[in-house]
């Protein structure tokens, strides 16, 4: 198969969803254009932005960091060590190796040192690992961004992630979630930083191919705690549809993002639906919250209490 763009070189990547196949060089151009167009169309980033890129050691986030650096954005990487046996060490290793290869030192948050490693937190707080993880990550995105004077936080969510989430929100008619789902969540004056997903136009296969061809070494294993995540069910359903009708996913998502779509209120609807009044500072850490203390601090307090109960001598 020949490259559909230069028509000379042998194709290295075939992309049925784009009815295309590219040689390595042409694929690099194609992929970067997909990302930069996605950034430009939705005005995710400005040239003067200071971007905090959240890297997990997986392909998407490392590819995102790679492209943003190549495109000349000022970036730093943030790695959150979740404290998951084995998996966290291996993913951290990949992040550090990649960062070193680009002359960077990532900012590392160690949840064990913060007193809230995910496996222990999941035992103490009766919540799913993934939702605990989500709360903790959002908390540190904001905190590290504020401390480091970053103007925006970027995550590696791709088209497959976003359409899986969209399908889930639609199937359950999560109207408030639908109203807010967008690759751009604006920041607020109260200390929530702007969040963007610059890979929203590219699929998982594309980021994997880009990462591989660029020689980026990433963790291919999955987080052991996310094994039965429902998002994987939606992903598989969409992927089967995509197999039969290539290009469906991007049509699905672009149609959703269309400003005339009444389901979506757009970036301006970013405030949480349960928000009442104006947020105040968390009594424990100062982060913006609608309660006395923020959800992160409440979770951490429950882990601390569970620990002191265990440490206390057992009375009969």
């Amino acid at each position: 198969m020949k490259c559909k763009r230069c028509r000379r070189a042998e194709a290295a990547v075939d992309l049925p969803s784009h009815h295309a196949a590219f040689c390595t060089d042409c694929f690099f151009l194609f992929f970067r254009r997909q990302v930069t167009e996605g950034i430009r169309k939705l005005r995710l980033l400005a040239p003067e932005d200071r971007v905090l890129v959240c890297v997990s050691g997986g392909k998407d986030s490392l590819v995102l960091w790679d492209v943003l650096m190549d495109e000349g954005y000022e970036t730093e990487g943030l790695y959150i060590d979740l404290g998951i046996d084995g998996y966290s060490d291996r993913s951290k290793e990949k992040v550090l190796a990649y960062a070193t290869s680009r002359g960077k030192t990532p900012i590392v948050v160690d949840l064990a040192k913060e007193g809230i490693p995910i496996p222990e937190a999941a035992r103490c707080v009766r919540m799913q690992e993934c939702s605990i993880c989500g709360t903790v990550k959002r908390y540190f995105f904001n905190r590290v961004a504020a401390e480091g004077k970053f103007t925006v936080v970027a995550t590696g969510h791709n088209l497959d992630d976003e359409t899986a989430r969209l399908l889930g929100n639609l199937l359950h008619w999560q109207r408030d979630h639908l109203a807010r789902q967008h690759p751009l969540l604006p920041g607020t004056d109260e200390g929530l930083v702007r969040k963007v997903k610059p890979l929203w136009r590219v699929s998982e296969v594309e980021t994997a191919a880009y990462g591989f061809l660029k020689g980026i070494d990433y963790v291919t294993e999955e987080c052991p705690m996310s094994e039965d995540a429902t998002s994987l069910v939606y992903k598989e359903a969409l992927s089967r549809i995509e197999d039969r009708m290539p290009g469906t996913r991007i049509v699905f998502y672009k149609g959703f993002l269309d400003p005339s779509n009444p389901l979506r209120k757009g970036p301006e609807a970013a405030a949480p639906a349960d928000a009442v009044g104006t947020p105040r500072a968390c009594a424990a850490c100062g982060a913006p919250t609608y309660a006395e203390t923020c959800s992160y601090c409440r979770m951490k307090e429950r882990v601390r209490k569970a620990r002191s109960l265990r440490a206390a001598p057992v009375s009969r």
Partner: peptide
């Protein structure tokens, strides 16, 4: 053969 499907 490397799976590209990531969770979460």
């Amino acid at each position: 053969v490397i799976s590209v499907v990531s969770g979460g």
